[in-house]
C-alpha cells in the first residue's frame, strides 16, 4: 500500500431535492483512500454510503466540497471528462450485477475495452484471460439470464477488472449471493487488491468487511468512525 492518497474528499455536501423538501444525503463528509488500500464502507440503510460510492465513481454530482482523484480536482468535471476518467480508471461491481441482458458473457466483459478503443485481437486475449481467472470461460457464449447469481457476479467482477482499473468500487457485491459464492467473490477482490488495485466496498456484512484494510462507518450522511480491520484472508 502506498502512502499517496488516490481519493481525497473534503467537506462534501450532497442534497436530494423534491418539490417540497430538501434532504441532506451527505453532510460535510471528509474521507481519503490511499493507493492500494481496501476500504469497506458500512452503515445502516439510508446513511448515504451508496451515494458516496456513486460520487466517488463519478456517477453522481456533489453539491459542495472538493474531490481530488490522484491529486486532480474532478468535482467540476463535465460528463465527458467523467466518462473518460471512469473508463480508464474505475471498475464497478454491483449488488444486482448489472449485466446487459442482450449481451453474452464475453460481450459484457468486452464492453469496457470497446469504449477504450482496444483493438479486437487484444480485446479477445484480455477477455479470455480474465474469464479464465474468474473461472467462467466455459460460459463465455451464454447470456446473463442463463447463469446463476454467483456466476453472474463473477462475470461482473471480470468486467470490472478487464481494463486493469486503478480503483474498483463494489456496492454490496455479495448482497445477492449465498455464502459460498459470496466468499468466492470476496476472495477475488482480495486477490485484485493484493495485485495493487484500490478497492472501495459498500457492505452491510461484517464478515465481508473483515477482508478490508479499513472500515469507514457512516450514519446520517456523516462518517462517525474509522477502524482498521483485522484483515482476514478467506
Amino acid at each position: 500500500m502506498s502512502t499517496k492518497n488516490m481519493i481525497k474528499i473534503s467537506n462534501l455536501q450532497k442534497y436530494y431535492r423534491t418539490e417540497e423538501v430538501e434532504t441532506v444525503a451527505l453532510n460535510n463528509l471528509n474521507i481519503h483512500v490511499k493507493e492500494g488500500e481496501f476500504v469497506a464502507v458500512m452503515g445502516p440503510s439510508g446513511c448515504g454510503k451508496s451515494t458516496l460510492l456513486n460520487i466517488i465513481g463519478l456517477l453522481d454530482d456533489l453539491d459542495e466540497g472538493s474531490y481530488l482523484f490522484n491529486d486532480i480536482e474532478v468535482a467540476k468535471f463535465k460528463e465527458r471528462g467523467r466518462s473518460d476518467l471512469r473508463k480508464h480508471n474505475i471498475g464497478f461491481v454491483f449488488q444486482s450485477f448489472n449485466l446487459i441482458d442482450e449481451l453474452t458473457v464475453f460481450e459484457n466483459v468486452e464492453l469496457p475495452l470497446v469504449y477504450t478503443n482496444v483493438p479486437a485481437a487484444e480485446r479477445k486475449r484480455r477477455v479470455e484471460e480474465v474469464l479464465e481467472k474468474v473461472q467462467i470461460m466455459h460460459r463465455r457464449n451464454h447470456f446473463p439470464q442463463q447463469l446463476s447469481g454467483g456466476q453472474q457476479q463473477r462475470v461482473a467482477v471480470a468486467r470490472a477488472v478487464v481494463n486493469n482499473p486503478k480503483l474498483i468500487l463494489a456496492d454490496e457485491p455479495t448482497g445477492n449471493l449465498d455464502s459460498n459464492n459470496g466468499n468466492e467473490v470476496m476472495q477475488l477482490l482480495t486477490e485484485l487488491n493484493e495485485a495493487g488495485t484500490t478497492i472501495v466496498m459498500v457492505t452491510h456484512s461484517e464478515h465481508d468487511a473483515k477482508f478490508s484494510d479499513r472500515v469507514i462507518r457512516m450514519l446520517d450522511g456523516q462518517v462517525i468512525m474509522e477502524t482498521s480491520a483485522l484483515k482476514q484472508n478467506g
Binding site: G57, L59, R80, S83, D84, R86, K87, H88, F92, N98, L99, I100, D101, E102, L111, P112, Y115, T116, R159
Partner: peptide
C-alpha cells in the same frame, strides 16, 4: 442497459 453502458464509459 444505458446506465451500465454509461458507467463503463460509453459517451
Amino acid at each position: 442497459e444505458i446506465g451500465i453502458r454509461k458507467t463503463l464509459g460509453e459517451s
